[in-house]
Write a protein that binds this DNA or RNA. Structure first.
Length: 139
DNA sequence: GCCAACGTTGGC
DNA sequence: GCCAACGTTGGC
């Protein structure tokens, strides 16, 4: 199994975890950053990702699954950037705030910590396991 | 092709 | 609301 793990940021007043749950499947569009777009192109159907609330809350709130691999973002007039589709898997028992992630030396290398402005980052399997532990979830 | 100026994102 | 970090743009 070569599953990959990701972290996707959203501002909850624009698109929150509850919005995604209400929709059942959400389109992750509007990404206009090449590094983030590259990560999205690397995603495979079935990959898991952390849903993270930026600005308000500033914490990891849930687990999502990639349900459709990268396709041209319909909101991009130039047709250069991509979007993916995601489905909610489960809400974390205990949301993991950025503060706690920063305080954990095992997570110091996360894209989230090192590249705070990147909206779609990679998560290493051992980092994934650590965050899940902090969230009170079984891996 | 380099680099300064500017705009945007995101944490606090 | 402020500021730091980073990406992008544009002059040379």
């Amino acid at each position: 199994m070569s599953e990959q793990y990701w972290l996707m940021k959203s501002e909850p007043d624009v698109y929150s975890w509850d919005d995604l749950v209400a929709e059942k499947e959400g389109m992750w569009d509007g990404v206009r950053n090449h590094a983030a777009a590259l990560n999205m192109k690397t995603m495979k159907k079935g990959d898991l990702a952390i849903f993270y609330h930026s600005n308000i809350g500033v914490e990891a709130v849930g687990i999502i699954k990639i349900s459709k691999e990268a396709f041209i973002d319909p909101t991009d007039e130039k047709g250069k950037f991509v979007a993916v589709k995601v489905k909610p898997v489960k809400k974390l028992k205990n949301p993991v705030p950025l503060k706690a992630i920063k305080a954990n030396p095992k997570l110091a290398e996360m894209d989230l910590v090192r590249l705070s402005r990147l909206s779609v980052g990679k998560v290493r399997p051992e980092e994934w396991a650590e965050v899940m532990k902090m969230a009170g979830e079984k891996v």
